[in-house]
Design a protein around this nucleic acid. Sequence first.
DNA 1: TTATTAAATGGACATTTGTCCCGGATCATT
DNA 2: AATGATCCGGGACAAATGTCCATTTAATAA
Lengths: 188, 188
Amino acid sequence: MLRTNQLFLDRTITLYAQQQRQEDIVVRRYTKGQNLYDQGTVSTKVMVISEGLVKCYFTEANDKEYIVEFLSVGEIVGDIESIRHIPNLCSIQAMTDVTVYAFSKVYFRELLEGDITWSNMLLDVMAQRIVHTSSRASYQQLYSLEHSLHRLLEIQSQQDIAIKKGDMAAYLGISVRSLNRELKKLLE
Amino acid sequence: MLRTNQLFLDRTITLYAQQQRQEDIVVRRYTKGQNLYDQGTVSTKVMVISEGLVKCYFTEANDKEYIVEFLSVGEIVGDIESIRHIPNLCSIQAMTDVTVYAFSKVYFRELLEGDITWSNMLLDVMAQRIVHTSSRASYQQLYSLEHSLHRLLEIQSQQDIAIKKGDMAAYLGISVRSLNRELKKLLE
DNA sequence: TTATTAAATGGACATTTGTCCCGGATCATT
DNA sequence: AATGATCCGGGACAAATGTCCATTTAATAA
């Protein structure tokens, strides 16, 4: 559920090193808490995370938030919006200090249209994401909360990060109160 | 939520007409209730729906089912599995009589690797799907059931199809009992 | 260190949702 | 018409979840 994609990052680094114009890909840094994207606004960049962890979330009228995903090294963001020419679907916030390679949208599209290897690489990444997103959705519907929570806790310990209770709840789609109840159950 | 994609279908029809080998793309028909794919098995085809309506669903250990999506004319299925070389993620069942153009996986991959226009077209379709899937997931978490139900009912009347209560519930991720309660509320 | 804010915890109660179940309606087949 | 299968509707109760809130515990700023 916390996905990383080294292959994609490697290719990005190569492109960064090779670039003619210096503005095609730039390195950007964000500090913990900053937003890389704001839902509903238009961004001019497509980014590949090279360091750190971000959360990708929706906020709606009732000001509740739903975390779509936690993303880490090698993940690409802003690609969908660039392909479909739409404003940012969700907000993305740095949960740790974050470094990214930021492609200009123009350059990103040039790559897509001119480089079939790149295009196929992105297809693979997107297929992966769809697998992930849809299986997660079904998972949370079909299995017990206990099950989903277990997975989340595993990831958390693997990654050695502390996710706030509020974020965990927003990811699981439940209230913090329910999360606490569930956590207590885990300790018998 | 019930998506169709005419552009994609048009391109498929052209390819079908032009094909050299007769086995690259074949037309297949399914009758209501038949499965186009079975979750967990390996299929050798990628299909584009040219007529009819299907449901795409997961079933899990507890034999509950979760409907990921209803798909209609122009939608492509089996693409993800072909790209990622994995068994079918979900089952797909014909809700009406259905006609499809069935690509052999080999030919489908040839197209992807050799035809950048096709590759970009698929990228666009996949981006669309991600937008759709993730916004639906958040939608159902953030908004009331009433809201989601309204949308489902609208679609149903637009498409002039009768979706079974069981399917509606599986799509909304609730029990039929809850669905009935909710429907009753709509009539004040 | 102290003041201030944010996060975590859990009780009490109200709602929502699920499970179990049975009777009625509908449709197809014999 | 009789039979069986499937779907629909809703009562009754149990379980899960949310809301509200007050207390405690970090975390951060002054």
